[in-house]
Design a protein around this nucleic acid. Structure first.
Length: 616
RNA sequence: GGCCCCAUCGUCUAGCGGUUAGGACACUGGCCUUUCACGCCGGUAACACGAGUUCGAUUCUCGUUGGGGUCACCA
């Protein structure tokens, strides 16, 4: 039998890191067996613009190199493949036909029960700590002629029926899972599930089983949360006379440092997670620079705080109360609008407020001061969150680093192999070696893969993407000259390992701004020039520098060393003021590289600028 | 709560009856160094607990505890 696997995303507008792993394992398995991997769109409940919401997902897969043989076209507007369409919203007829078939064979029934009644019964069962057995009092089924009377009445009253599965009430089902092994279920514990709504539309389980069969899926590799759903799906498949696919249930991906499943609903919360925060801050810095959003400040905080009366700030409990308000506001905003925009908005505000509130005294004065402020709060991007794949593309990760990391999240080849080429992954993958326990996502380890692969990439290959970032941050004009490429490459080479992602080039903005516009770190400035003689030393070296003909790393180093030796000072005494004058900060690449790249003219100009500021 | 799943360093994992319990990330001490980063050398750190089976259990069985999933006219 030909191996055919599938991944079935719903068009949510973004690609979740856990989903990617599931898709990756499906893809790997198919590729390894020379089979096919398909994408099927779970949009049975979609009212929104599917192709727009699908586009980021398809783009994410494309970026990661996970290609699909059948499914939606790349623009997400139509289907391509022998089993088209691959959108569940367009396959309703097939599901309805299957439902009819189940009805005809007695494997399903029309149910005229009142939904409100069912809810009550279910709650009662839970209260009584008992398994809820679905009552078939309103079931229209040949084996239950006693219901005929009341059903006739219900029909006459115009009550609508749903279609429910007529599940077995005895026996054991053993699922032979490729990852879990044999898992047993008692049929009696399975409830009569609804497969078709009163309005005739069909539900996920029916759709999924029908599609898997129709599309000849051989292996259903999916997240563990579906394990409990498998019995009813098997019942549907068997009742329809389908041959069963093999099942493999993957452990879910958990939050960093936790065993809790990563979930879309908690997206904003993740930025408060300390393991995500570092990675996110790094990314945010890049994101902010890209959008040239120095101005974006805490409008959200202002909004909340403006409503707070001043007297409130004198209350002893005001800080803890504010903390509560913030958390509530976050979730209220979440409920009100499902848009990520809102969640991003509130989470930014939450973080900032919580940071401020850590210091009570500061908080009081800050709140008071900001109450009068009015600033613009801009958003980076609605998908700017380290749980979403797009984040990594925006910040400038290598897709292979992500794929390699995800491969090892719940799977291992042996006790030491960590780095895999795509071919090695495909060759070495096996479901048998998939772990059963959930694995928590560690952004730091992902970063280590990124560093590894990024270091392997020659500077010249990084140049075009880095130029893109510089353009987007406004550090290079939209139309750059041909000579810019080699110049940027030189900077990339000199920066070396300091560049971990493409976006990191923005940390070296000093090479792209005018001498006058160079931002200078105020704190470092005060500290450095507070030292006696710092300014004079810099001034003296400026004259030395002016004499140098060959402005290159070697001669520069010789000259600087000779200068400090002659003066009997330590290298560091000169270097700090010099670096500050040239770069406006005290961290960065080698100083001789900096001098050489900047060139004599700009170096002298920047030193003069610094000296002129320090004379007073 | 019913049902199901899971359990090795902080994290990802190796281990499939006898190992000084191995590797990676993170953390950390040192070296290198004008800063930062890299690199190099070193260190801390784990078998959830309790019974069995066995000459011997991290490994097999059962139980306890803990974690998680799932129980929709969502997917």
């Amino acid at each position: 039998m030909k191996v055919r696997t599938r991944f079935a995303p719903s068009p949510t507008g973004y690609l979740h890191i856990g989903g990617v792993r599931t898709a990756l394992f499906n893809w790997l398995f198919a590729r390894q067996h020379g089979g096919e991997f398909l994408l099927r769109i779970d949009d049975t409940d979609a009212e929104r613009n599917v192709s727009a919401a699908l586009q980021p997902i398809l783009h994410g897969f494309e970026w990661l190199g996970i290609d699909w043989d059948e499914g939606p076209t790349k623009d997400g507007t139509s289907s391509t493949g022998p089993h088209a369409p691959y959108f569940q919203s367009q396959r309703g007829d097939k599901y309805r036909a299957a439902a009819e078939k189940l009805l005809a064979s007695g494997h399903a029934y029309r149910d005229y029960a009142d939904p409100a009644e069912i809810v009550k019964l279910r709650e009662a069962a839970e209260k009584a700590k008992q398994n809820f057995v679905y009552p078939r009092d309103w079931a229209e089924h040949p084996s239950l002629p006693e219901n005929a009377g009341r059903i006739a009445e219900a029909k006459a009253a115009g009550r609508q029926a749903v279609v429910r599965l007529f599940m077995p009430r005895e026996g054991t089902l053993v699922i032979d899972d490729l990852i879990r092994g044999q898992v047993e279920f008692q049929w009696a514990n399975e409830s009569d599930h609804v497969i078709q709504r009163a309005d005739g539309t069909c539900l996920y389980h029916l759709a999924s089983v029908v599609d898997d069969y129709d599309m000849q899926i051989s292996h259903v590799i999916r997240a563990e949360e579906h394990l409990s759903n498998t019995p009813r799906q098997i019942f549907i498949a068997q009742s329809l006379g389908y041959e069963l696919p093999r099942y493999a249930h993957l452990p879910y991906v958990a939050e960093p440092g936790s065993k809790t499943k990563l979930s879309k609903r908690k997206l904003p919360k993740y930025l408060l997670n300390k393991d995500f925060a570092a990675v996110n801050d790094h990314g945010k810095k890049i994101g902010l620079a890209i959008k040239d959003a120095e101005k974006r400040i805490d409008q959200a905080i202002v909004q909340i705080l403006e409503d707070i009366p001043n007297e409130f700030l004198d209350e002893p409990d005001c800080i803890s109360l504010l903390k509560e308000i913030v958390v509530k506001a976050q979730f209220a905003a979440l409920d009100k609008s499902k848009s990520v925009f809102t969640t991003e908005f509130t989470l930014q505000m939450t973080r900032q407020i919580l940071e401020i509130l850590d210091n009570e005294n500061y908080a009081r004065s800050y709140i008071k001061s900001i109450k009068n402020a009015s600033k613009i709060y801009d958003l980076i991007d609605e998908t700017f969150n380290p749980v979403i794949v797009d984040f990594y593309e925006q910040v400038g990760y290598l897709p292979h680093a992500i794929v390699n990391y995800l491969l090892l999240l719940g799977w291992s080849f042996d006790d030491k192999t960590e780095y895999f080429t795509q071919e090695e992954m495909i060759k070495g993958f096996s479901l048998e070696r998939v772990n059963k326990a959930p694995a928590s996502f560690d952004p730091k380890k992902l970063m280590s893969f990124q560093e590894h692969y990024f270091a392997e990439l020659p500077a010249k290959k990084k140049t075009p993407r880095m130029i893109d970032y510089l353009k987007r941050a406004g550090l290079l004009p939209e139309k750059t000259e041909c000579s810019t490429g080699p110049e940027v490459t030189k900077i990339i080479e000199a920066a070396g390992d300091r560049l971990k992602v493409y976006g990191d080039i923005l940390n070296f903005s000093e090479f792209f701004v005018s001498d006058e516009a160079l931002p200078v770190n105020a704190e470092e400035l005060t500290k450095t020039f507070a030292k006696p003689g710092a300014r004079d030393l810099l001034a003296a070296f400026r004259h030395e520098l002016a004499k140098i003909e060959a402005f290159e790393v070697g001669p520069l180093e010789t000259a600087l060393k000779a200068f400090v030796d002659a003066r009997g000072v330590k290298v560091g005494e000169l270097i700090h003021p010099l670096r500050l004058a040239l770069c406006g900060k005290t961290v960065g690449m080698g100083l001789y590289d900096t001098l050489a790249i900047l060139g004599k003219e700009r170096c002298l100009a920047r030193i003069d600028l610094m000296l002129s500021k320090q004379t007073a």
